[in-house]
């Protein structure tokens, strides 16, 4: 295979009701974003266990982004409020351990914000690409 420029691996967790629909809308409008963004559908952003984020890093993801409904718009009324606290603390902890803070992000994206979704993914990928590979959290044994 030819040698490509470095492409970071981005895992995006998207809630079913807002952000996943927002990603679909980005598709409907043909708004492109890097193909290294891979979306995992969850019912609500509050379904995302910090362990999933850590697991993604462990398995070699270079950046993890969580997308959910805007605060106040959660389909389940309060799910994203819990997400907001959990991720604020988790990301602060990762930063404390010396993991580059640019690798983690939470973005609220509604079903109508296809453009915002695509733009967010472009920006995030760029930011992660600037950092290079995730060496600090990756478990190299998983790369075989």
């Amino acid at each position: 295979m030819q040698v490509n420029e470095y492409k970071p691996l981005i895992v995006a967790f998207c809630c079913n009701w807002c952000s996943y629909a927002g990603a679909d809308l980005a598709g409907n409008n043909r708004l492109s974003y890097p193909d290294n963004v891979k979306i995992i559908r969850v019912p609500c952003s509050c379904r995302v266990n910090p362990m999933f984020v850590l697991r993604a890093f462990q398995r070699g993801a270079d950046g993890v982004i969580l997308c959910g409904c805007h605060p106040g718009d959660c389909h389940y009324t309060s799910g994203n409020y819990y997400t907001r606290r959990r991720m604020a603390l988790l990301f602060s902890m990762l930063d404390y351990l010396g993991i580059e803070r640019e690798r983690t992000r939470v973005e609220w994206c509604s079903a109508a914000e296809g453009a915002k979704f695509a733009q967010t993914m472009n920006e995030f990928t760029e930011a992660v690409a600037a950092l290079g590979e995730n060496k600090r959290l990756e478990d190299l044994r998983c790369k075989e």
């Binding site: 691996l9 995992i40 969850v42 999933f52 398995r59 993801a61 998983c142």
Partner: peptide
Amino acid sequence: GFATSQIMAEVDAICK
């Protein structure tokens, strides 16, 4: 339908 093990499996498959 969205079990921990299932989402973990998805993460693993994507990060392979």
